[in-house]
């Protein structure tokens, strides 16, 4: 029972760490963006879990009903965060398309190689 009661605080760390691992280990820029999105959803899970209350229902008030409502504040914060995460993802993807047009690749290590080669050419010229 105690494992299940603390399951979410382990699960959100696991989800965040899968995203962080992808961010570091993978070179593909689109994959890195997906990893970043995963990292954000881990944080969403932590906040929503904080708002849960035993026997609580959705925080929509009902006339004459004596209900325990779950905490609406984490929900509001995460609504904002979801929209902001979409905005950052849109800008990141636009930048990746720009990188692809400029370098012909979206692998971070290949881009670094091209940059280094160009810098050396600049020194020789």
């Amino acid at each position: 029972m105690s494992l299940f009661a603390t399951f979410n605080s382990i699960a959100f760390v696991v989800i965040m760490m899968i995203g962080l691992y992808t961010l570091i280990a993978r070179q593909n820029l689109v994959k890195k963006t997906l990893g970043l999105g995963l990292f954000q959803t881990g944080i969403f899970l932590m906040y929503i879990t904080l708002g849960v209350r035993d026997g609580g229902s959705a925080p929509i008030l009902q006339e004459g009903a004596d209900l325990a409502y779950s905490n609406p504040l984490p929900h509001v914060l995460i609504l904002t965060a979801i929209v902001v995460s979409l905005s950052t993802m849109a800008v990141a993807l636009a930048l990746i398309i720009g990188v692809r047009e400029e370098y012909g690749t979206i692998e971070a290590d290949e881009i670094a190689t091209i940059d280094r080669a160009e810098a050396e050419e600049g020194h020789e010229a």
Partner: peptide
């Protein structure tokens, strides 16, 4: 399931749809 209804339909529309 966790009674965050507004987050649920935003996630379905934004996370699974728009993203």
């Amino acid at each position: 399931n966790l009674f965050a209804m507004d987050v649920s339909y935003t996630e379905a529309a934004v996370g699974a749809g728009a993203a």
